[in-house]
Each structure stands twice: as C-alpha cells, then as structure tokens.
C-alpha cells in the first residue's frame, strides 16, 4: 500500500455500562433517566474499531485515523479525556443529541456529511470503521447507510480481523453463525467495516499521546457543527430494559465428567 489508508472511525458515546439505565420519556421521545448527567464512554463496539484502526495505521506507513463522533460536545469533551490517551487520531466532532433512540437515517446523514467535509480526505484511500453493534440501542444499519451515502459499497459487518496485503487488498474475517468466520478478500479501499470485538486489548492510557491528540481535539470541539436529527416519522410505542435472566444453580461436589456432559448437552440444545 503506497500511501497508506485514511481510516475514518465513526464512534458514538454511550452511558457507562455500570450506571443505572432507566428508560424515561422525554420531550423528543424516549431516552434514559438523567442521561446527560451519567458518565459516558466511547461505545465499546466502535472503540474496538478505533483500536484496530490505530493498529492498522501504525503498520501501514502514511495512514491516518480520524474519529468522527456525534454527541453533545460537552459530553464528547469529557469522554475525550480518556479516549484521547489511548491512540493517536484526529477528532471530527459533530454537536448533536445524545441517546440511542435517534433515527439511524438522520444520524447516518449527519455523519456522512461530516466525513465528506474532512479536508484532504481521499475516498479511494478511505476505510470506514464503526461498530457492528452498540451499547445503547443498536439500530444495526447506521454504518451501512453512512457507507451508501458516501458511495462505499464494499461493506463488511461483524468484523474481527483485517489483514492487508502489500498491494492494498485485504482479507476480512466476518462473524457468521456457529462461532465461525466468513473470509472475504477485498481489492482495496474504500470499504466499510463494522467491527465486532476485534482481537486487540484496550490500550493503556498514555498522557503523552493524550497531549498530542489534545492539540487537535479542543479546536475540533470548539468548531463542532451543530446538527438536529429529524425523527423522519420514527416513533416508539414502548421502551423497556431487557429482563435479567438468572439460570444459576448451586450444586455441590458434582464430578467433572458430569459437569462436562451437562455443558455439552446444553450446547447441543
């Protein structure tokens, strides 16, 4: 790959999963109780995409990572104090509403517009990364629509691995049923990759990386374009948290063979 990739990672922010998440009806539809006040984190699926992007950029000379994030900029700023310490990137902030109940079409349109406006972005070098799922309400279509709007039709979802060849083509492992991966080979950028968990651990915080990123993060937040997301006729009849399921049994002194048999039987069900 001669000039490297321009990797654009779309990543929203979600409430810290340890927080109490209680659906609440707001003026603009459903949301979470006190959501603005809850500590937020980068959506874990998209975060996996960010770390994979940084890893790929480090291996492919001339590559660059952009992080495109839509959310209230005050919340984005708080999250950046951690995320910016992880890996080098350039932030493109879009000041918009918080929450997992926005319309995916409207969100995708705002993201696509922000990406299209990135100065110097070359579509033929662009890899569009994001989360396959979301820790808030995953619509399951946002990344596909962003790709379509930007004219990127090579799309992969549930990605766990990308391996780039010298000619710029790459092999992608996508999750399929049965714990297996589908192997695809793509001729090269541009492409959309919606990441599952990838295989990289969360990088440690490194304030030196953070200070370098911050030179761009703060100006990006200051000039973040404000967007309103149209509901496009979307409405929610009801919202509820998934019920907790507890199927734990306490059994004493069960022989190992019997435990193994039970597990196999459960898998075969």
């Amino acid at each position: 790959m001669a000039n490297g990739f321009q990797i654009v990672v779309c990543a929203s922010i979600v409430p810290d999963p340890l927080q109490t998440l209680e659906p609440a009806a707001g003026a603009n539809g459903p949301g979470l109780k006190n959501e603005m006040m809850l500590p937020a984190v980068l959506d874990p699926w998209a975060a996996a995409g960010l770390y994979e992007a940084a890893n790929l950029a480090a291996k492919q000379a001339g590559s660059k990572v952009y992080l495109v994030s839509l959310g209230p900029k005050a919340k984005l700023q708080q999250v950046m104090m951690t995320v910016a310490q992880k890996v080098p990137f350039e932030l493109v902030a879009v000041d918009g509403p918080l929450g997992g109940f926005t319309d995916a079409q409207a969100t995708a349109a705002a993201l696509a517009e922000a990406i299209a406006a990135i100065p110097g972005l070359e579509r033929e070098r662009m890899l569009l990364f994001g989360g396959w799922e979301s820790a808030s309400r995953g619509a399951g279509v946002t990344m596909q629509v962003v790709g379509e709007r930007l004219g990127v039709t090579d799309q992969f979802q549930g990605v766990d691995q990308i391996t780039v060849d010298a000619d710029g083509s790459f092999e992608v492992l996508e999750r399929v049923e049965g714990g297996k991966h589908q192997v695809s080979v793509c001729a090269g950028a541009p492409a959309v990759l919606g990441w599952a968990t990838g295989s990289l651990p969360e990088p440690r915080n490194n304030p030196q990386v953070g200070m370098a990123n911050m030179r761009g993060v703060m100006p990006a937040l200051q000039k973040a374009k404000s967007v309103k997301l149209d509901a496009n006729g979307l409405s929610y009849v009801s919202v509820s948290l998934p019920k907790q399921q507890r199927e734990t049994r306490l059994v004493k002194d069960m022989p190992e063979d019997e435990i193994a048999r039970e597990i196999v039987a459960w898998i075969e069900e």
């Binding site: 006040m37 500590p39 708080q78 200070m211 993060v217």
Partner: peptide, 22 residues
Amino acid sequence: GDAVRQILWRFSDRFDLQMLVQ
C-alpha cells in the same frame, strides 16, 4: 460526576489535569 468536580476544584479548563485524573 467529573464535570461537577472539575468546576468545584477549578480544573475545568485544564485538560492536562483532566487526563491525569482519568
């Protein structure tokens, strides 16, 4: 949360300190 603490303890404009905290 952090945003409240940053104002109370006067480091809301110091992102170097905010990163150190995180």
